[in-house]
Simulated scan of single mutants.
Amino acid sequence: MTQQLQGSFKSLENRIDERTFELVKANQELQLISYVDGLTQVANRRYFDRYLEQEWHRLAREKKPVSIVLCDVDFFKKYNDYYGHQAGDRCLQRIAYLLSKAVQRPADLVARYGGEEFVLLLSDTDTSGAILVAQNILETLREMRIPHVPSDKQQVSVSLGIGTIIPDAQLLPESLLAATDVALYAAKAQGRDRYEVADNPPTHRLNP
């Protein structure tokens, strides 16, 4: 009788262990899903914001630069209208794959920022390093020659904004994003299919 009870308890413990493992695994998968963009399979905006804050504090302590590259697909609404939304989705997937290949270091990150806009976080990277990444993206996409009839270039292109700073614990990460966004729109104003670098360093600081 005692051996039967011990066997039953052991079996129950094993089932509990298996169920616990399944729950932990399921929670990990749910967390992963919550941080990944379903269409492009790169990080989503939620994860980017969290990771930027983490890297911001780390690089502030180490006094090393961080670069942000904002990437916007040129005339994407026209692309969707002409080719259809399914083709538009495939286009975004191809660009996300291109961007993922453009950054290879473990600390770098590619995320879908919203709609047809992506963002790259390049840790411990100065402006010259970010420019090399941007040039590689532009050249690779041109070589891909994805047709885009409504565009004046007749193929898919992107505009890029670059911002770089050595983070400061009293400086808001959002200020770097704002400066980079200005550079992105400057690239669009200058004819698209190019990059522009943010001129002025961010100045938005936390209240003392």
Rank of each mutant, 00 (worst) to 15 (best):
Q3H: 09
Q6E: 14
G7W: 05
S8N: 12
K10A: 15
N14F: 10
D17C: 09
E22A: 14
L32N: 14
S34C: 10
Y35N: 14
D37K: 04
T40V: 06
V42P: 03
V42S: 03
A43N: 14
N44F: 03
R45L: 14
R46D: 08
Y47H: 14
D49V: 07
D49Q: 14
Y51W: 08
Q54F: 10
E55L: 05
H57I: 12
H57V: 10
L59C: 15
L59M: 13
R61I: 11
K64R: 15
K64M: 11
S67L: 13
I68T: 13
C71R: 00
F75P: 01
K77M: 06
K78A: 15
D81A: 13
G84F: 04
G84R: 09
A87I: 09
L92A: 00
I95D: 00
A96I: 00
Y97E: 00
D108I: 01
L109E: 04
L109D: 01
A111F: 02
G115H: 01
E116I: 03
E117L: 03
F118Y: 07
V119A: 02
L121W: 04
S123M: 08
D126K: 02
S128C: 01
I131W: 02
L132D: 12
L132W: 07
V133M: 07
L138E: 02
E139P: 05
T140M: 12
L141Y: 02
R142P: 07
E143D: 09
R145H: 10
H148S: 04
K153V: 05
V158G: 03
V158D: 02
S159P: 08
G161Q: 05
I165V: 15
D168N: 15
A178H: 14
D181E: 13
D181K: 10
A183E: 10
K188T: 08
A189V: 00
G191D: 07
R192P: 09
P202W: 08
T203E: 13
N207F: 00
